[in-house]
């Protein structure tokens, strides 16, 4: 199995000089294609920071972070943007564009690639929304959808571009138990079908069972794999 994410001896700290606050210390972790990995740990353990570094949203300077065979340490913005386009993101809040319909929101992912026609984008986005069970809500705007539905739209948005990696940050935090579990199961099912790697940060213990592997982070150190 090929390695999709390969992290070696990653150190990261906020601030500088006397105020330096180490967040991640000597992290080494590799994740294979199609694997579903959950990162848990108490607040402030650095798990979200870790996720943003993997996603190319934060610049790290020490160690090695290879995502899809691309080194992120001291990399330039265009390199990171290119990798970001191959990653699907699911946020704690749904973060959908409130002026767009569900269908248009999902299409936003496809507009970047710019290889499809308008009709193809529509069809693929609609297919994806049907797959997450929102076939009858295509033209609804975020204001007209429930929390669970919104998170399912954002799952569709993350998956429609057929990304190699999905990064999710507490996707169930704003949902009740049942809809949270449904959303994550749906994510797992769709990801397994397309061999997508999932890295999911959570401290929701109710969803631990979907993972192939659970990584526990505490004070910036991997405690248990």
């Amino acid at each position: 199995m090929s390695t999709v994410i390969d992290v070696e001896h990653l150190d990261f700290s906020f601030g500088s000089g006397a105020l330096t606050q180490p967040v991640l210390k000597d992290i080494t972790l590799s994740i294979h294609k199609g694997e579903i990995v959950l990162i848990t740990g108490p607040s402030g353990s650095g798990k979200t920071t870790f996720l943003t570094i993997i996603g190319g949203l934060r610049q790290a300077f020490h160690g090695s972070v290879k995502v899809l065979d691309q080194q992120f340490i001291n990399s330039s913005e265009p390199v990171k943007v290119k990798i970001r386009q191959q990653i699907g993101y699911i946020f704690q809040q749904h973060n959908l564009l409130k002026s767009l319909t569900a269908l248009q929101n999902v299409s936003m992912t496809l507009e970047m690639g710019n290889t499809l026609t308008e009709q193809q984008r529509r069809d693929r986005s609609a297919e994806m929304l049907i797959a997450v069970g929102l076939g009858d809500r295509l033209d609804y705007k975020p204001g007209q959808l429930s929390g669970g539905q919104l998170q399912r739209v954002s799952i569709a948005r993350a998956l429609v571009g057929q990304p190699k990696i999905i990064l999710a940050d507490e996707p169930t935090a704003s949902l009740d138990k049942q809809s949270g579990y449904e959303a994550v199961s749906l994510l797992k099912q769709l990801a397994k079908e397309s061999q997508t790697t999932i890295l999911l940060v959570t401290h929701d213990y109710r969803i631990l069972d979907i993972a192939d592997r659970v990584v526990e982070l505490e004070d910036g150190v991997i405690k248990k794999v």
Partner: peptide
């Protein structure tokens, strides 16, 4: 701001 940041995370250029 949040929407733009989301799109940036998805890979939209500045």
């Amino acid at each position: 701001r949040n929407e733009f940041a989301t799109l940036k995370a998805m890979g939209y250029e500045h």
